[in-house]
Each structure stands twice: as C-alpha cells, then as structure tokens.
Design a protein around this nucleic acid. Structure first.
Lengths: 333, 333
DNA sequence: CAACACGCGGCAACCGATTGCCATACGGGA
DNA sequence: TCCCGTATGGCAATCGGTTGCCGCGTGTTG
C-alpha cells in the first residue's frame, strides 16, 4: 500500500525497451515483434504490472466504467435491475458505478454532475429528472433511459400496457365485471401506461373500471387503499405493485373478508413477497434483470458508436403469474 | 457529446490568468486573491467547466471512488448493505463502484484486479476469497471486511452471537427445551458464530440443541429441511436466515402441522418477507444498512490515513423482532 | 532608507499511458 | 548494385490537472 504501483516505465527499464513499446505490447498485438512482446509480458507479470486506468483514460478518453442511477437500491425491483446491469457491464469488461438518487431529482442531478465525467455512458433506471435535464445529460454522454420515453433518446421499457391487458383478460375470464385500479405515484411513468391500458380494455372485455389513488407505493398504502375500496367494493382489484397489493389484501382480511372469495387481487412486479404471502399473489412479472442488462448493452452499443437513429424504444414482454389471490367471481363455479 | 469538455486552460484563457491559478482557485481557497478567485469561478461557471477526474486522479493519486464487492446484489440483505454503503459514500463525496461476485472467489479476484486501481478503498461485504487473498488486496488499498475476521484487517461485524443468544433466550422463556438449528453454507462466516453461540447457551438456559444441515439458503432448502427435522422433531427451530425459516414453515404446514402450535420458528435478517409471511416470522434483525455505511466510513477513515492500529472489529448490535411464529411450548399456557 | 516578509500569480515539471511520426535495418526486386 | 517497401523500435508530444519554486510588488520594521 506504501510503494507505488509499477508503471510501464519500470517494465520498460527491466525489459530494456522503450515505454512506448511496452504500451504497444499490450494494446497493439502485431505492432511489436512477437518475441519482444512475449518478453515484455513476462517481465510485466513478474513485476506485477497493472495499467493505471486514470492515465489510460486521460489519453484515450474512455474509462471502461458505466453509471447506473436508480431511485432506491433497497427496492427489490431496482436491485434486480442493478444486478442485470452489473452482469452486462462485467461481461463487456466495464465496471458499474451505482448511484442511488433516493427518489430525488435534485440528488440525481448532483450525482450525475459528479460522476458523468468518469464514465463512458449512463443508464437512468428510474429518473425523476425532467425531460430537458435528461436530454442535457444525453448530450454529454451516451445515455439510455429505462421505463420512460424521452423524445429522441434510446430507451428500454417493459411492456406494462400489455401486462395490464393480460391481467384484465385474466380477470374477465374469471367472470369479473368491475375492476378497481389502485394507482401509484403520479410521477411514476408506468402507472399512467397501466391505467390507460386498463381503460382501453373496457369495451372489448366488457368490464367497467375504477381508479383509486394515488396510493403510497407501500404496504401501508395498500392497507389504506382497502378502506377506500370498501366504500365502493368491486370483485377485482389491480394494484400498482406487489407491495400495495399485499397491503390491500391485509387490509381486506382485517375487515373480515377473504381473498379471493370476496375480492380477487393482482399485483405488479412479482417480487419475492408475492410468492410468500398468503394467499399467493397473482402478479404481472416484469423481466427486471433483463431490463438492466439490455439497458447496459444498449448504452455500450452507443458508446461503441451506434447510429443514434435506432431510437425506437425496446419493449420487453411481461408475464402473468397466476397464484391464489385471483379466483372466479362470487356466484360462479 | 461531440465537443470536448472545457478545461482549466479554456477557463484560464477566458479569465486572463494562468492555468495553475485556475486550479488553485478551486482547490486552494486562500492561496488566490479573493477577487481573482471569484472572477475565475464566474468564468468557469459560464463555460460550464468541470474538472476532469482522470486528470486529477493522475496527479493526486486519489479517485474519490470506493469499491464495494458483495456476493449477490439481488439478495435483500446485501442490497441493504449496498444502500448503506452508497449513502455513506455519497455523503463523503465518494462514488461507489459496485461489483457482484456471484458467490465466486475467482470472479471476486478478477473484479478486484480490474477496479482496484480505480478506487481509493475497498469494502468486502461478503468475500469468498481466502484470507491471504484478502490480505493481498489490503496491501494495495485500504480495505475493510464485513462480517468476517481476517487477522489484522479492520472489519465491521454484526454481533450474530448475541443475536442467537437472544433468540435462544426468547425460546427458553417460552418453555422450549429442545432447539434445532438449520445450518447455512459452511463457507458463511456468520453460520459458525451462530451455531457456537447456540451451543454455548445450552447449560445456562437448560436446553438441548441439534444441528441440521448445511441447508441451501433458499426457500426450497427450508422446505427440505422440514423433512429432515420431522425425523427428530423439536418444539423450536432456528434457521440460518429468513428464507430458510419461511421455507421450513411452509414445509411444516404442508405436513399438516401448525406454526407456532407445533413448532416455533425463528429466522435471521428480518427481510421484508418476514413481515409478510403467515404467520409473521420472529427473526433476528441485523442493521445491514448501518453495516454498509459503517463499513464505508471505516474505509474512508483509513483512506484519510488512520492508524492501522485501530484494528479491533466493530460490533453492531442485533435486535430480536418477535412475531407470530414463536409461541409457548405445547402444553403450556 | 535598507532589509525583509508576505501576498499573489506564473513557469514548468510532473502523474502514466497512448500514438503520430521518424529512424534503422533487413529483404526483395529491377 | 541500387532502390524501396516493410517490420520494428524509439522519440516526444499529448491528455488535464496539481504543485514546488521563483519572482514581482507592496507593506512593515529596524
């Protein structure tokens, strides 16, 4: 920790060549005589030589690092995204700088300010910044946004609309005629998409829909939503996410009603809790991991100089996972 | 994205001073005349100047980045650690490079090889490497390990022993005389600590203990453990972690037995699932977030040049969270 | 009035790797 | 035998900050 790391100069001296030759031995195979290169590599290994990334970055203007910003790493949805991102980054030989914006656009700006110059590209997993702010960032480094559309910027999204559609179809098939949607935060982009998809499915599926909320995207938010729902009960409820759905079930149960006998419940995200709760929660699973990895690969493609014309958003499919929280409407087998 | 960022040279020219003066205006307040500094700062702001971190790093040998390595970011335990680490890092003006070792010592080595030179310090949250390998890393950069003791290296740990002790006391108070421990992976350091703590509590609490496993630290591992336990049932079970505990409860329930009437169950970690499962899981909560933030602060203290003598491991307290999965032993009120 | 201290800005040498350009040597073709 | 292309290695500039040292000008002190 005390002595300085070995540099190409050390290696050069030990191998009896010029520093430039050492550099080329590593980065330009073929440019250097095979034997010389071999000798240099041996000496370098003996000395434990490791290229200094900062020095390299200074002249090449690339850092082999990529920034991933998300709203809350503690949220299992995002931690899956982070994992996918890390996998894709590692596979491409990039390191991941992870920043948690804690749901704040201000923090997000500050963080970007700090790390933007240190990375080759940026993945905004759940940006709370304005479109213009996001575009500003994209002007400096290749940027990809997740689950959001910012005009002209590449993005990767989960097909929430289709997921909601599937959920509605599932409920309709079970005979449900009225569906309540427990809405999430207004700022959350997927929320609007889902609600619209549900509304659009009305006539075709012959159902009526109601919207309650916005509801805090937490367990307690769901519990409170149960009270609101009780004022105008419907036989089926779709919640903004699993946590709300689970809270809702809990609220309903404490009111003495049963799931799914009295009300069918569907969540979003398929978090681990959905499997563990009683009854098991039917939920729309999104490929969060894939979202992260595709996002990073997308960023890296742009770093590699892809045409910025490939700007149509990438849509990832969802999957309805049916469990015990949904059942036929009361009075039907 | 095309045009190069402004440098101190641009600012210097625009402000009519030398580059060195610009540099000092930012990094040496007081070294430059207040008015000059102000003028430089104004010009810099107009030009949108932002110091190039690589260039700075090259001469200062510090990067304002810290590496955090963990075994699996998808695991809620680790994602909490990551969040705590990120918070502490951000607060100190450091960025966090997060790497997921996927439980592999080999990957861990490779990752470190790549990023070690880019960071000022390292936090090993759940290293799978050998002690010597860890020490090797610590020789290059300030390193702190979490939940592990590597002779001579600073570490932060959760007081698992005490947590287990509390769990045992809780069970003893409920009248349980026999406790089964569902052991986790042998490589997991906390596992040994917990088992030893349980054994050490035997005589004082007047209980007998058994050990089953190692069990895969998953839901299914718990389910299978239920079968093993059924061969020699005890009235109380402590599991390696919440997931195993929940799987165990599920396994027991499918065998037609009830929790806690037939068997009391305690988990470790207090993950969100512990609250959601039915019955609610009594579990030993560890301050994972604090673990991450303390870890990072510890690393940064060493970066700042703390005496490496402060090598006694930091112990963080646990807390027993009692829920419905534990109750009095059968035949007692 | 001379000597000196101090405030403040500039010069230039780093930090370590990359890379355009030149120099040398060697082999082949005319 | 002479010319030229090619393989190979070295020189030196460059990336953008940082910092030791010097020098100038002003104010203070003996």
């Amino acid at each position: 920790m005390a002595d300085r790391p070995t540099t190409i100069y050390d290696v050069a001296r030990a191998a009896g060549v010029a520093p430039s030759t050492v550099s080329r031995a590593f980065s330009r195979p073929g440019r250097v005589n095979a034997e010389t290169a071999e000798r240099i590599r041996t000496v370098a290994a003996e000395l434990g030589y490791r290229a200094n990334p900062q020095a390299r970055a200074l002249s090449t203007r690339t850092t082999s690092m990529i920034a991933v910003l998300l709203a809350d790493i503690g949220n299992p949805v995002f931690s899956e995204v982070a994992r996918g991102a890390e996998e894709a980054a590692a596979e491409a030989g990039y390191a991941m700088v992870l920043a948690d914006t804690r749901e704040s656009a201000g923090r997000e700006r500050e963080l970007l300010d700090k790390i933007l110059q240190s990375v080759d590209g940026v993945l905004l997993a759940s940006s709370r910044m304005s479109d213009t702010a996001v575009r500003q960032v994209a002007k400096v480094k290749p940027t990809v946004v997740l689950n959001r559309e910012v005009g002209g910027l590449p993005s990767v999204m989960v097909d929430h609309g289709r997921g909601m559609r599937r959920a509605a179809e599932h409920l309709a098939a079970l005979g449900h005629k009225q569906v309540t949607y427990l809405a999430g935060p207004e700022a959350a982009w997927p929320d609007g998409v889902r609600w619209r998809a549900l509304r659009d499915a009305r006539t075709e599926l012959g159902i009526t829909v109601r919207r309650v909320g916005p509801v805090a995207p937490t367990l307690n938010g769901g519990v409170r939503a149960a009270a609101a729902w009780a004022a105008h009960p419907t036989s089926a409820v779709v919640a903004y996410n699993d946590l709300v759905a689970i809270g809702f079930m809990r609220g309903v149960q404490t009111m003495g009603k049963e799931v799914p006998q009295d009300v069918s419940v569907i969540g979003f995200d398929n978090t681990p809790s959905a499997e563990i709760v009683t009854p098991g929660l039917t939920t729309v699973a999104a490929p969060q991991r894939a979202l992260g990895s595709r996002g990073v690969r997308h960023v890296l493609a742009f770093v590699g100089g892809a045409r910025s014309s490939s700007t149509e958003p990438l849509l990832l499919p969802t999957k309805l996972v049916t469990r015990a929280s949904t059942g036929p409407v009361a009075g039907r087998s």
